[in-house]
Design a protein around this nucleic acid. Sequence first.
DNA 1: AATCCGTGGAC
DNA 2: TGTCCAAGGAT
Length: 352
Amino acid sequence: MRYDAKDIGAALLAWYDGAARMMPWRVGPADRAAGVRPDPYRVWLSEVMLQQTTVAAVEGYFRRFTARWPDVAALAAAEDAEVMAEWAGLGYYARARNLLKCARAVATDHGGRFPATAAALHSLPGVGPYTAGAVAAIAFDEPAVVVDGNVERVVARLFAVQTPLPAAKPELVALATRLTPAERPGDHAQAMMDLGATICTPRNPACPRCPLAAFCAARAQGIAADLPRKAPKAAKPLRRGIAYVVRRSDGAMLLERRPDRGLLGGMLGWPGSDWSAAPDDAPPLPADWHDPGAEVRHVFTHFELRLALRLAHVGLNAVPDRGTFIPAADFRPASLPTVMRKVWDAAARHGT
DNA sequence: AATCCGTGGAC
DNA sequence: TGTCCAAGGAT
């Protein structure tokens, strides 16, 4: 390579010192200068929330979680349903289940303190190579290699890697390892990610403003916007289903806790049919069902869903085959995953 | 190794 | 409207 990794690292940190974005989980420049270290609990919580999720989407959730559960002991003592309800809407609900498992493991197996190395962090539920490295570097000053989607893109461009993702991942990790410094590894990791988020963006990268432009092979070849290359993705099949919205005469709503594994695992939802090409009609109790003619559309990671609605009103003595009546005072649409909240919105528009 | 797992914003 | 994709992890 024509340039030393130290030159790239120095240019990156110099840029970061003037351009770092402030976020609720970051320690500000003044505190940092005073030697304040980030709280591992807050770093871990933010990193889990940020998995495949934008900063803008995370900020509100992070504030609510830290206000309600200010440390790992408080979170470890929380009720499962309360945490799942607070996570509702953020997506990838296995993160919330693993968040609780991890907090309880830290409380019971680690004396209430997060382990301080990437290797030990990696053994915790929901903590993979990225999150382990990020927490180790940011909270514990370990020179861990931190490779997320931003870093993959920055490195692929810096070194003009032509191999498509995900096959290119090992090569990109090796290149990122060469850039990882012994000094300020946490700032280095955050600088790489800030650069990817604000300058070295997927589309229309702002190369003229990039502190690493002079080092960038893709920039020199005029192909920065074309990297990283990616394998083509599969088309999303269409699935259909039926959602049953039951209101009892006292206002209670019939909801069902979904199994802990799989789609929307552990979350509340409306009783429903299977989701398939041709779903069966499977009402949760006998009733005079009303079809409002509405359709709820929702796109998941790997399929598109169209839900038909069936609405019913039942008496106080109704006994459902499945699900539980939630009293009106306890029913919070915001505690539902988004597709289920859409069903509620549609049902409400049609008189339920 | 390939698949499964949410959501909302940008363009 | 369609497409991409964001600080990934588990199995």
